[in-house]
Computed example of a mutant assay.
Amino acid sequence: MSQILGRVTSIVVVIALLLDAAVDLFAPGMLQAEMTAVQFPPHQAFTLGIVVAACAALYAVPTTAIMGAILITGFLGGAICAHFRVEETLTAPQILSVVLGVAAWGGLYLRDIRLKELLPFRR
């Protein structure tokens, strides 16, 4: 049962990341205000889209899922930091980044026995 929940959670994470990547890649104009607000040049949206898509792809493949989770966590941490840098605290992007990061690791933990062996939770 936990493996099914882990796979479903992981699929939600991958879909969310791919949707974000699609907006970055195919509709960067929608992000212009947000990119400017966190002091990133709007033309970098395309590059961010490629990075997010690559992270999602690595996470989706079982043999590279742990590397994908590490990269996703780093990317989301950078997103959180970008908002802190411009004195935005507890904004929707920050909260979503935390939730997505926890979901990525939670889904991976539930579906991958290797991670359970590495990080056992004891009662």
Results as ranks from 00 to 15, higher is better:
residue 100 L to E: 01
residue 29 G to H: 01
residue 108 L to R: 11
residue 85 R to W: 09
residue 100 L to K: 05
residue 30 M to P: 00
residue 89 T to M: 13
residue 115 L to P: 02
residue 3 Q to V: 10
residue 49 G to F: 02
residue 35 M to V: 07
residue 39 Q to V: 08
residue 28 P to W: 01
residue 11 I to V: 12
residue 61 V to I: 15
residue 123 R to C: 03
residue 86 V to A: 06
residue 101 G to I: 00
residue 100 L to T: 12
residue 39 Q to T: 10
residue 117 E to M: 08
residue 46 F to M: 13
residue 11 I to H: 11
residue 13 V to T: 04
residue 32 Q to G: 03
residue 65 A to R: 15
residue 111 R to P: 02
residue 110 L to T: 02
residue 65 A to E: 10
residue 85 R to G: 05
residue 82 A to C: 02
residue 8 V to R: 15
residue 2 S to D: 05
residue 119 L to K: 13
residue 115 L to H: 01
residue 72 I to F: 01
residue 38 V to Q: 08
residue 12 V to S: 02
residue 117 E to I: 02
residue 24 D to F: 01
residue 74 G to I: 04
residue 59 Y to V: 10
residue 76 L to N: 00
residue 119 L to S: 12
residue 123 R to M: 04
residue 91 T to P: 01
residue 61 V to E: 09
residue 22 A to W: 03
residue 98 V to I: 14
residue 12 V to M: 07
residue 121 F to L: 14
residue 70 I to T: 06
residue 69 A to N: 06
residue 110 L to E: 03
residue 69 A to H: 08
residue 40 F to G: 05
residue 52 V to C: 00
residue 80 I to Y: 03
residue 72 I to Q: 00
residue 58 L to T: 03
residue 23 V to N: 02
residue 51 V to E: 02
residue 21 A to R: 01
residue 4 I to F: 11
